[in-house]
């Protein structure tokens, strides 16, 4: 079979769309208008296309769209919006963790995925969780600061 209708959810919205077998999730999401998911390399090197699938961060460029049938996808725009940003998004903006912003959607998704599993990560755990997200502008310093601030807020001020 080379084409079929797939049902899946993106940012709490149901989609049913006909997709060829070779389409990646990245291609499908962007074609559906989720252009907050960025394409930086299409081979899993840069992490700009990261999305959450049932809460776990994956590179959408390495994922065939058919394989997410029936699953729930969250892109960075699904975490919050400018009127009501997700606390992590607010922390990134406030800490200057964003420069050109092209890596940001992926970095925030990877950070969120980390914090959902490890609410109080060490510095090394933060670095490890973000090692698949390349950033060429910030030098990562303020990204670490933003994630740490988030941890601090959530843990009521206790940092490991």
């Amino acid at each position: 079979m080379r084409e079929k209708a797939i049902v899946f959810e993106v940012n709490e919205r149901q989609h049913c769309t006909t997709i060829p077998s070779h389409r990646t999730l990245l291609e499908v999401l962007r074609a559906l208008g989720y252009v907050d998911v960025k394409c930086g390399c299409e081979k899993g090197d840069c992490g700009a296309c990261a999305v959450l699938v049932d809460g776990e961060a994956i590179d959408s460029c390495l994922t065939l769209a058919w394989t997410v049938e029936g699953r729930a996808i969250t892109t960075v725009a699904g975490l919050g919006n400018s009127n009501n940003p997700h606390p992590l998004q607010a922390a990134f903006a406030r800490n200057g963790a964003i420069q050109c912003g092209f890596c940001t959607p992926g970095v925030i998704i990877a950070s969120e995925s980390l914090l959902r599993k490890t609410p109080n990560p060490s510095d090394d755990e933060i670095r490890f969780a973000l090692s698949g997200n390349l950033c060429r502008c910030t030098g990562y310093t303020k990204i670490f600061e933003a994630v740490r601030e988030m941890v601090l807020t959530r843990s009521g001020g206790v940092l490991r």
């Binding site: 907050d36 998911v37 892109t75 960075v76 725009a77 975490l79 919050g80 919006n81 400018s82 940003p85 997700h86 998004q89 607010a90 990134f92 903006a93 406030r94 200057g96 964003i98 912003g101 940001t104 959607p105 925030i108």
Partner: peptide, 13 residues
């Protein structure tokens, strides 16, 4: 906070 930061953080840029 830069004026372009929030839009980039929430993916609306």
């Amino acid at each position: 906070e830069r004026i372009d930061a929030k839009g980039k953080a929430v993916g609306s840029t």
